[in-house]
Write a protein that binds this DNA or RNA. Sequence first.
DNA 1: TCCTACATTGGACAAAGTCCAAGTCAATGC
DNA 2: GCATTGACTTGGACTTTGTCCAATGTAGGA
Lengths: 124, 124
Amino acid sequence: MTAQRRVVAEVLDGEHVHLTADEVHARAVAKLPEISRATVYNTLGELVSLGEVLEVATDKRAKRYDPNAHRPHHHLVCARCGTIRDVHPTGNPLADLPSSERFGFTVSDVEVTYRGVCPTCATA
Amino acid sequence: MTAQRRVVAEVLDGEHVHLTADEVHARAVAKLPEISRATVYNTLGELVSLGEVLEVATDKRAKRYDPNAHRPHHHLVCARCGTIRDVHPTGNPLADLPSSERFGFTVSDVEVTYRGVCPTCATA
DNA sequence: TCCTACATTGGACAAAGTCCAAGTCAATGC
DNA sequence: GCATTGACTTGGACTTTGTCCAATGTAGGA
């Protein structure tokens, strides 16, 4: 555990957000100015491997990193401003995929992204 | 309707696949050598706006374009080789999101991506 | 203390996509 | 028929996001 890794972990722990790698880097730099982008990417990759952090692909631009890895959840994204909320739908989407629709795959995971317009953007 | 746009439409119509923009461009070039990447991007963007084609973000790299826009469906992706299959789960994920979990959003759409390992990769 | 292995750094590189000025082309109006 | 107009296309420059690599730094054990 080096200073750099601690800083990355702190950035993600600090608030429950969905940051891009660049945003993580920007916040890490604020705490440890000489940290490099490569280290941030390395550390994020390790956190993902360890299962401490999830990668989410809610928009089609940058990956986002979600520290809320220990509680299963899905995401609700505003189509206009990009705001992301964690949501907990009822039901289990995995159970909704009949074996006839699995084509022999071993299905292990499901990612659900709801899209809509948030209240702020709707009134604006 | 120009020759360039027709070629892009043909590439997507021809087979039921999930191509990246670059793959669309490569196939379009085979039919019309001087077509440029910018035109392919423009045309894909227009097709998406018209609702003729869907963008899907199954992997976190390039967007893929799915011409099967008129029948709602979701995707099953192999975590190893990236193969994508269209699937039709039972149930309606939109109905599984209670209003208490909508945070005032107007939710209009949901994208479900199942992940697993395809039979080919499982035996390899 | 010295060594070794690993972490970090900065910069080059690559992939995916956007933007823009300039060129092309067809239709319209005169 | 010819010029004008406007939309479409082109190629290249540029941006963003991410990866790779050689060189450097550093922590901890022998």
